[in-house]
Amino acid sequence: TTVVVGNKKYTFDNPEAAEKFAKKVAKKLGATVHKTNGTFKVK
């Protein structure tokens, strides 16, 4: 599962961990999490 934050990509074996990370980053940046085909995008 990939999490994309700006131009950085983070890969997780565990989708739950990926989602948690994405939400944490989004909260910090005041952004939102978008899920597309198993990829979480923070923007």
Rank of each mutant, 00 (worst) to 15 (best):
residue 7 N to H: 11
residue 39 T to I: 15
residue 28 K to Y: 07
residue 4 V to D: 05
residue 9 K to N: 09
residue 36 T to S: 11
residue 19 E to C: 04
residue 5 V to S: 02
residue 35 K to H: 12
residue 4 V to N: 06
residue 13 D to M: 11
residue 36 T to A: 10
residue 22 A to F: 02
residue 32 T to Y: 07
residue 27 K to L: 12
residue 24 K to D: 12
residue 12 F to W: 04
residue 15 P to M: 12
residue 16 E to M: 13
residue 4 V to R: 07
residue 18 A to Q: 00
residue 11 T to K: 13
residue 10 Y to V: 04
residue 23 K to H: 15
residue 7 N to S: 12
residue 13 D to P: 14
residue 42 V to W: 01
residue 11 T to R: 13
residue 32 T to L: 06
residue 28 K to S: 08
residue 24 K to F: 14
residue 27 K to W: 07
residue 20 K to Y: 11
residue 34 H to C: 11
residue 29 L to A: 04
residue 28 K to C: 05
residue 15 P to A: 13
residue 28 K to W: 06
residue 14 N to H: 08
residue 34 H to S: 10
residue 15 P to T: 10
residue 17 A to S: 11
residue 3 V to G: 00
residue 16 E to F: 11
residue 28 K to A: 12
residue 34 H to F: 11
residue 22 A to R: 01
residue 10 Y to Q: 01
residue 7 N to W: 10
residue 33 V to N: 01
residue 18 A to Y: 00
residue 9 K to Y: 11
residue 23 K to A: 09
residue 5 V to H: 03
residue 33 V to C: 03
residue 8 K to P: 00
residue 4 V to K: 07
residue 17 A to H: 09
residue 25 V to T: 06
residue 34 H to A: 07
residue 27 K to T: 09
residue 5 V to M: 05
residue 6 G to S: 05
residue 24 K to H: 12
residue 39 T to L: 09
residue 10 Y to G: 00
residue 42 V to I: 12
residue 38 G to D: 08
residue 39 T to H: 15
residue 28 K to I: 09
residue 10 Y to W: 14
residue 1 T to M: 08
residue 14 N to P: 03
residue 35 K to D: 06
residue 10 Y to I: 05
residue 42 V to S: 02
residue 13 D to W: 10
residue 17 A to R: 10
residue 4 V to G: 03
residue 4 V to S: 07
residue 12 F to A: 00
residue 37 N to T: 05
residue 9 K to G: 06
residue 34 H to R: 06
residue 43 K to H: 14
residue 27 K to P: 01
residue 30 G to D: 05
residue 17 A to V: 12
residue 37 N to D: 14
residue 6 G to K: 06
residue 21 F to E: 01
residue 3 V to D: 00
residue 6 G to Y: 14
residue 32 T to H: 07
residue 15 P to H: 10
residue 16 E to P: 05
residue 29 L to I: 11
residue 1 T to F: 13
residue 29 L to C: 04
residue 9 K to P: 05
residue 38 G to V: 03
residue 20 K to L: 11
residue 37 N to I: 04
residue 2 T to S: 10
residue 21 F to I: 02
residue 28 K to G: 05
residue 1 T to R: 06
residue 23 K to C: 07
residue 26 A to Y: 02
residue 25 V to E: 05
residue 12 F to E: 00
residue 38 G to F: 04
residue 26 A to W: 01
residue 16 E to D: 11
residue 3 V to C: 02
residue 7 N to L: 10
residue 14 N to K: 09
residue 38 G to P: 03
residue 4 V to T: 08
residue 40 F to H: 05
residue 21 F to T: 01
residue 28 K to M: 09
residue 42 V to E: 03
residue 8 K to G: 05
residue 9 K to S: 13
residue 34 H to T: 14
residue 38 G to Y: 04
residue 42 V to H: 02
residue 3 V to F: 01
residue 14 N to Y: 07
residue 30 G to M: 05
residue 43 K to Q: 15
residue 43 K to N: 13
residue 35 K to M: 13
residue 22 A to E: 01
residue 27 K to G: 07
residue 11 T to V: 13
residue 27 K to D: 11
residue 12 F to T: 00
residue 41 K to V: 15
residue 36 T to L: 12
residue 24 K to C: 09
residue 43 K to S: 15
residue 3 V to N: 00
residue 2 T to W: 12
residue 15 P to K: 07
residue 14 N to F: 08
residue 12 F to P: 00
residue 41 K to M: 15
residue 3 V to P: 00
residue 17 A to L: 12
residue 5 V to D: 01
residue 21 F to D: 00
residue 35 K to P: 04
residue 22 A to I: 02
residue 38 G to E: 06
residue 23 K to P: 00
residue 40 F to E: 03
residue 16 E to W: 13
residue 37 N to Y: 05
residue 6 G to Q: 05
residue 39 T to A: 13
residue 32 T to F: 06
residue 7 N to I: 11
residue 30 G to A: 04
residue 43 K to G: 15
residue 2 T to V: 13
residue 41 K to P: 04
residue 6 G to V: 05
residue 7 N to M: 09
residue 26 A to H: 01
residue 34 H to L: 13
residue 4 V to C: 08
residue 22 A to P: 00
residue 40 F to N: 03
residue 20 K to H: 10
residue 43 K to P: 07
residue 15 P to Q: 10
residue 28 K to D: 08
residue 2 T to G: 05
residue 36 T to R: 05
residue 34 H to Y: 13
residue 1 T to H: 09
residue 39 T to C: 07
residue 39 T to P: 03
residue 11 T to M: 13
residue 41 K to L: 15
residue 20 K to P: 02
residue 41 K to G: 07
residue 1 T to L: 06
residue 21 F to R: 00
residue 9 K to L: 10
residue 32 T to S: 08
residue 16 E to A: 13
residue 43 K to V: 15
residue 20 K to F: 10
residue 31 A to R: 04
residue 31 A to G: 15
residue 32 T to K: 09
residue 39 T to M: 15
